[in-house]
Amino acid sequence: MVHPDLRVKIGALELKNPVLTASGTFGYGREFSSLIDLDLLGGIVVKGVSLKPREGNPPPRIVETPCGMLNAIGLANVGLESFLKEKLPWLQGLNTAVIVNIYGHTVEEYGAVAAGLSGVKGISAIEVNISCPNVEQGGMAFGTDPDMSAKVTERVVKETDKPVIVKLSPNVTDIRKIAVAAADAGADALSLTNTLTGMAIDIERRVPKLANISGGLSGPAIRPVSLFMVHQVVRAVKIPVIGVGGIVDYRDALEFLIAGARAIQIGTANFVDPRASLDIIEGLRIFCQDKGIDRIEDVIGTLKI
């Protein structure tokens, strides 16, 4: 029986399989370590790290919606210094790719976090969350404007020796423009999508269900949207694309791979089933075996139109 090769390359980054856990849904990895063998994962993308620690938004921060959830965590995190001191050493003991998701409120902040992670052992790549408000531009998200996206990308690339993955926001009219801007600015890869902005209302009390009013929609509800954006972006740029959004099983993962994503990330599904990522890896393996496919690479970008 063939033993399919699940390894994929995202530019210079080599993964043992195409399944990563998505930022913000897997903590710093350790939270899941007593439940699953993390070394079986293609990689872990850790919670977004900022220059300074951030408390996050007031509660309620999450609410369930049909086939999905809204979150307004507010990017709560321990900050760069504590991340390096308290979280990273444990992650360095793992035998899987560790990708650090970063964000900032100014181009300088993005640059400073990237610089702080540069040269640090045990970090395979940096993922840049550009869905954040730019405080110098009236709070408009970096990721909604091609020029701002390019500026952030350029700065991060300049400050670090790690491969740079730019994570795109779906809350735009034409995601290809942002994708091209980030690619031209030097990104090594793109990941998409982040959450879709939405809200929910308590009809009894007539108040928003989230204290922040709006939140980011994730889970199976967004999958078709993310998938189509991946399809569009794969055709618009030459750099590798990582698919994210509503993936809960190996069939969902295959849709993204066939569309041309070279890897995928599992987010909300981790909450529903902590084993989801491992089950997806196993599902991909069995799919390849059943179809006589030697390498998962041979599935990527095979969409027939």
Binding site: T25, L35, E55, G56, P59, R61, I73, N270, F271
Partner: peptide
């Protein structure tokens, strides 16, 4: 609290600490 993960991973179940505490949630 509303919870998504129950594991300390999502930070969805935040609750305010009293003001004497160093961290807010």
């Amino acid at each position: 609290a509303s919870m998504a993960c129950g594991l300390g991973a999502c930070q969805g179940c935040a609750i305010r600490r009293s003001s004497e505490q160093a961290i807010a949630y």
